[in-house]
Design a protein around this nucleic acid. Structure first.
Lengths: 224, 224
DNA sequence: TCCCTGTATTTTGGATCCAATATTGATTAT
DNA sequence: ATAATCAATATTGGATCCAAAATACAGGGA
């Protein structure tokens, strides 16, 4: 009965390459605008070009890379405008997800969210930033899934994926991590009271802060 | 001999297969829930499995098919619940797109929308349902693109793709086609007055009607 | 009979090879 | 010297072949 999701090892080369590509883009090793040389990358990951190309097709669907026939793939430029746009879309979708989620909220659901939050705090205490980011994601997705709108959740998940690069920037700073934990606690509290609009407001506040923080990190000249 | 338009290139096998797969799914030849046998399909389309698999990855990203490692692809079930969910998401996204679009509305933009509408009416007069559906799509996308939010437009486009099957059901009936034309005229009128909220209301009304009409066609117990 | 198990078959995942296209660089004519 | 043209190269698109995994099936045991 153990949920077998916790694997570190991706079962197929395709998924492995997908992870690695995301990481490479996220960490900036593959820089926006750069063309993607399939042969070189395939050799680096020690796979053939076939799974690499399938992974790239997935990333194309998520908007992380662009594709032109016979000219291959390029890492998508994620400008600040793009970031703002993604966060705007998330605003629209996540607000609805939360409203629906509260309608279907159960005690068991609340408990699973509390467990996710415990994992977030444990990772934060251990200083494991990567694990904290993942747990944070699980926390939010758990809530969104109560909406019982699987396609909506899928879209939101994809949007999160597409801004992984920036999220890691945000999580790199300790005050931001602390802020996330407090926001989660407030969220849980408001969920217990079934106050959907207040949760929506907290999430909106979080996104606004995240965008501001990331903008500040990316354009160092304009800090107040 | 360099033409101003992009030179028309023979489509790649991958793009060809993508189109064919979409058609096969929307026309019901590949029925929801059916597993996709790659070898058989590849032979039918007279291509190898490689471009087929890449096309399937694209469709997976669009939510038209599902995928499990080592178990292959399945045509996604598009239940009425799914349809309602897609239309709900469209509601959220298209409303924002229209609001932003009106902010950037120009006379040149209006003219291009009017041209698109002319094509819709021409196709309707000619009784070309398929062309009318495509022109209708161009009409709406033209408007959405004024929003200058390319990712938002991309998402909306994908959502439209995922319900092609049902849309053709809607367009099959003459009264519905007539209704679409009138809605377009009203939309153009409201756009000239920069009345975003009224346009949003028209679109919402259209979607509600479409869902109702499709539900009626699919649950034969309530009709003649 | 039912269930478990081991094997055969089917189906997908991945690697290599070849073809088609784009890009680069050299060459020639103006 | 510059621009156009054509050959050489690099890169992607696609086909075939092989490996790995899942499914189906047969046989044996309780």
């Amino acid at each position: 009965m153990t949920s077998v999701e916790g694997h570190r090892r991706p079962p197929t080369a395709q998924q492995f390459v997908l992870e690695e590509l995301r990481r490479a883009i996220t960490t900036g090793r593959l820089r926006p605008g750069d063309p993607i040389r399939q042969e070189a990358l395939a050799e680096e990951f020690d796979v053939s070009r076939v799974p690499l190309r399938e992974a790239l097709k997935t990333l194309e669907g998520e908007g992380l890379v662009t594709y032109k026939a016979h000219r291959g793939y390029c890492v998508q430029r994620l400008s600040l405008d793009d970031l703002r746009e993604v966060y705007l879309i998330r605003e629209l979708l996540e607000a609805e997800a939360v409203r629906r989620a509260v309608e279907h909220l159960t005690d068991a659901g609340l408990e699973s969210a509390e467990r996710a939050q415990a994992e977030v705090e444990r990772a934060a205490a251990a200083g494991d930033v990567l694990e904290m980011a993942e747990a944070n994601r699980r926390f939010h997705m758990t809530i969104f899934e109560w909406s019982e709108l699987p396609r909506l959740v899928r879209l939101i998940r994809t949007l999160w994926d597409s801004t992984d690069a920036y999220r890691s920037l945000y999580y790199a700073e300790e005050p931001n991590r602390q802020r996330v934990i407090e926001e989660h606690r407030a969220t849980l509290d408001l969920l217990r009271r079934r106050d959907a609009e207040a949760v929506v407001a907290v999430l909106a506040g979080h996104r606004a802060h995240a965008v501001t923080a990331i903008e500040a990190r990316l354009s160092p000249g304009t800090t107040d």
